[in-house]
Amino acid sequence: MTSYSLILRTAARFLLPLLLMFSIFLLLRGHDLPGGGFIAGLVASCAFVVYLFAFDVAPVRRMLRLDPRSMVGVGLLLAALSGVPAVFFGEAFFTGLWLELELPRIGEIKLSTPLVFDIGVYLVVLGSVMAIVMALAEGEE
């Protein structure tokens, strides 16, 4: 059992929410600009890994709620399901569909099946990286 550094702990508490916010920012703007599900998932897993280094495996496991391996499964399912709606509109499987909503206060919002696919990729990347890192950290002891 190592003694965890106070500086690292304090930094990790601030970094975790900031990096998660940055990862969601990357996820949402990834369609036209650099970003997307993969790199957003990597940034999110970096956030959790910083927390894991500063504290321990158990708090991170509690924070994630879902087991990383089932997160991979949910992500894959979501990514596969994002191709389905196109079939009902007479298009080829995985054709991108866009839904434009006009909300009263917020303005125009574009929802799309590529976004659902990106969220699936995000979950797969986050789940697999966390599964690897947690297994390594637990094996160390």
Binding site: L19, L42, C46, V49, V50, F53
Partner: peptide
């Protein structure tokens, strides 16, 4: 640059 700096810190 932000992501690279983060990875380097990790």
């Amino acid at each position: 640059a932000v992501v690279l700096a983060l990875t380097a810190f990790l």
